[in-house]
């Protein structure tokens, strides 16, 4: 019995080692530093206990970035899922040029985000950008999208949707392909032959497992939004687009307040872990694996 246990540990040693070095170690280190006033590069530090976390709760900028992050996630997740599903259903229902469209919609997922962010920055530019020109054509004045606090976060969310829906689409397409044809036929004979009824009776329930996966992945990705903010707005205007991960980066590496940044990382970790847990719990009840 004892030897079997030992053997088990030996077999799993490489994985355990990698887990420790790449995941557990850093997490413990972050937890540790979040309790200190350590600054990047400094040789000494002192313990603050929960001081960093208390400071966080009083930090208006941090709270705003937290709120922005949630708003961003609430915009990006439904948008990405809806658009991804819509395009997937559209592509699956027609044979023509399927491959080209599928690839075209998937390109944003593969492209480097920061490069794409620069392109979006140019398009959203109030004077030379294409988007405002289109608005002018139709007689509207457009907006200074990324410099106006009321539109900046929305613009970033739209870029987020644009970047992610191809990924959702590919997953949805594979999910749609797995739905047996006879189920659609049964629904048709039973009287569910409108698009809405078919969606409710067959497509959405059968896509359950894929949907759960897509929502979790997209939500976690949205929570860790960084590139577009860094390239396009740097958190502005007036911290209107400041998000959790960006604030963490600024505190840790611009202001070198590593301990304080560590506390933010802990908050981020807790939020993402809870989100995943809640989603898995709630959605799992409504998902039907066959």
């Amino acid at each position: 019995m004892k030897r079997h246990k030992l053997r088990g540990w030996i077999y799993s040693a490489p994985a355990v080692l990698a887990m420790c070095v790449l995941f557990l170690g850093p997490v413990l280190a972050v937890l540790f530093f979040s309790l200190t006033d350590w600054q990047l590069g400094q040789k000494s530090f002192s313990f603050l206990g929960l001081g960093n976390f208390e400071a966080l709760l009083a930090d208006k900028v941090f709270l705003k970035s937290l709120r922005n992050t949630f708003v961003y996630v609430l915009l990006v997740v439904p948008g990405t899922v809806a658009l991804g599903l819509f395009v997937a259903v559209l592509l699956e229902s027609s044979e023509e040029l399927k491959g080209i469209y599928r690839t075209a919609h998937f390109v944003p997922v593969m492209a480097a985000t920061s490069a794409m962010a620069i392109v979006w920055g140019t398009m959203l530019n109030p004077s030379i950008g294409m988007i405002n020109r289109v608005f002018h054509w139709f007689g509207y004045s457009g907006a200074n999208w990324l410099r106006d606090e009321s539109t900046a976060l929305l613009a970033l969310a739209l870029i987020g949707v644009w970047q992610g829906f191809g990924y959702a689409m590919v997953l949805f397409i594979s999910g749609l392909k797995a739905i047996p044809q006879q189920l659609y036929e049964a629904a048709e004979i039973d009287g569910a032959d409108s698009a809405v009824d078919r969606l409710r009776l067959v497509v959405l329930p059968m896509l359950g497992p894929v949907m759960m996966f897509v929502v979790i992945i997209i939500a976690v990705r949205a929570f860790s939004v960084f590139d577009t903010i860094h390239v396009l707005t740097e958190g502005g205007p007036n911290y209107g687009t400041d998000a959790l991960l960006y604030r963490l980066y600024v505190e840790s590496f611009n202001f070198l307040r590593t301990g304080y940044g560590g506390a933010m990382a802990v908050v981020f970790l807790i939020v993402v872990a809870m989100l995943t847990l809640v989603q898995a719990r709630v959605i799992d009840k409504r998902v039907h694996y066959t």
Partner: peptide
């Protein structure tokens, strides 16, 4: 005439039941 209006019912080899119901 659409299937639902033909007043026919069909039983499939794979049963084709709605798994979530």
């Amino acid at each position: 005439v659409r299937p639902k209006d033909r007043n026919v019912a069909k039983v499939f080899q794979s049963y084709a039941l709605y798994p979530h119901l």
